[in-house]
Write a protein that binds this DNA or RNA. Structure first.
Lengths: 293, 293
DNA sequence: AACTCCATTTCAGAAAAATTGAAATATATT
DNA sequence: AATATATTTCAATTTTTCTGAAATGGAGTT
């Protein structure tokens, strides 16, 4: 049978013009190369070289050399692609995160590991937590970072970080005068701007505030715009603010530390990640760990 | 090292969805295939299948399957090309012959061996003997059929056939009345149309006739046209006439049998022919042999 | 034409790699 | 949990490839 090792050996001999150099190049003895060539010619039923001195090819040899070089080239490319993919040098990763993460953690990950992702295609989307779960189970993304309230079957999740809620108000707001933790009671007289994150705070005091809230907004930029215009104050995890200029808005932690948002790193439970995605997963974890240190 | 046998094995398993069937397809025991797969995964450092039941690929496995199938396809194509060329199924042959052979022997060869040359490119040119030698030594043709007077170094030649000269005249010419061999003396009073072939007849009587000849032509069609118009008679090897309708012209052999043209089958002496050219050479010899039988 | 040098081939044994069959283990199905 | 089926492991065996030494074969030289 015609084997790729034969092609490799033949090409080496044809290019070197003699057995000994080719053998050295291949890391074999001339004897081994000679036998391999003999076997190849016997299989093909045609001489590849004009003489024993392997410096002149027959027309058949010329043809085979051309074919063999193409084949080896192609094989090399395939091997490099496979090994490159295995080592996460090539490949693609599709990630979806909640918007605040997309604007805070992910840029950190990319700047930290810029080099590792040289030739990896990365697709980052920011969507809401529910859509992330949906996209994951549909196999439309490889990794997700979302707020998870309950475990979802078919998904593997690990806590990435826990982000405490706080009160965000304009810098000239009366609440901005102190930096101490705020009790729920202190908010009773405030105009609260509800949002899709604060809605999920389970504390009864928070529920009450939200029932009373006259304004609810979803888009963070618009919420913060309203806060800055002193239309009211809002409750958001600290991280949400990180993407905006410091000083522009004031943040005061809540005294009730149970009001938090848990960010989970998600992937399908039953399926293996691609090497590049696995590397990305690891690097997200490392980045978050180093940010918390 | 990643070997093509690994790719073959992996593709078989991935396509069958289980080891046993793949092993049967490959003509190996499941054990052998299992070990090969293990070795492949160890080399790559990545699992190719999700579970031991080889029915679900990892993303990496999906990628490798695609790459491997392409590679095997390419390898097969290469092997087929090489083996096809070796067996003269593919390839090309460039032949040049003197015009009379191109119009007589070569059509016979092609009609006899039509099937063998299915996918072989054949290029047939008809040029004069000297050019054939020239083209051969320049490696512009693989085979030549020409009249050779002396041995030419660097060329291998073998006599293909020997063709006796005869007198060609119009059917109503007085020489056409008999079919017996003609003596040189019988031509003394004839108007001879000299031609590039008859010029080379070495017999002194022929030399004399040629010196006296008032007309010389090169193109066979025009020579025969003149003969038919009874402008004169000419001397040509019998074969030259074969391409024309019998009865249109009369042929009388020469009594002097030494007046002949030797047709040689030529090829380069030091170089091996391509398989297709060698097959063609053989088939030319066989055709001529059978024509003479 | 015989000789010399150098490369290649041949040969038998050695090493490496692949394969097997049987037993063990793992996975699905009932 | 039990059974049936599929895969893995292991050590032994077979096959393949490789090596080193000797033989052979050309090419160039005297």
């Amino acid at each position: 049978m015609l084997k790729i090792e034969m092609l490799r050996g033949f090409v080496a001999v044809a290019r070197n013009g003699n057995l000994s150099d080719a053998a050295a190049e291949l890391g074999r003895t001339p004897s081994a190369v000679s036998m391999m060539l003999k076997q190849m010619e016997e299989h093909l039923g045609e001489p590849l070289f004009e003489t024993d001195r392997k410096n002149r090819l027959t027309p058949f040899g010329i043809f085979v050399l051309d074919q063999a070089e193409r084949e080896l080239q192609h094989f090399n490319t395939t091997v490099r692609a496979i090994e490159g993919y295995a080592n996460a040098v090539f490949g693609s990763v599709r990630i979806a995160t909640v918007p605040s993460v997309a604007g805070t953690i992910m840029p950190q990950v990319f700047s930290r590991y810029f080099n590792s992702f040289n030739q990896v295609d990365i697709e980052l989307r920011d969507i809401d937590s529910q859509s992330i779960v949906h996209e994951l189970s549909r196999n439309r993304i490889d990794l997700g970072i979302a707020t998870l309230t309950k475990h979802i079957s078919g998904l593997h999740s690990q806590v990435l970080m826990s982000d405490a809620f706080g009160v965000i108000c304009a810098p000239d707001h009366r609440l901005a005068r102190s930096a101490d933790p705020i009790e729920w009671e202190a908010l009773a007289e405030e105009s609260i701007i509800a949002n899709s994150l604060s809605e999920h705070i389970e504390a009864p005091a928070s529920r009450q505030l939200h029932t009373a809230a006259r304004l609810k907004a979803h888009n963070v930029v618009s919420i913060l715009g309203m806060v800055r215009a002193n239309i009211g104050v809002t409750l958001l995890p600290r991280m949400t603010l990180m993407a905006f200029r410091p000083g522009e808005l004031a943040f005061r932690p809540l005294a009730d530390e149970s009001a938090r948002r848990e960010l989970h790193l998600l992937r399908k439970a039953d399926a293996t990640l691609s090497p590049a995605a696995r590397l990305m997963e690891q690097q997200i974890l490392e980045t978050v760990a180093s940010l918390q240190a």
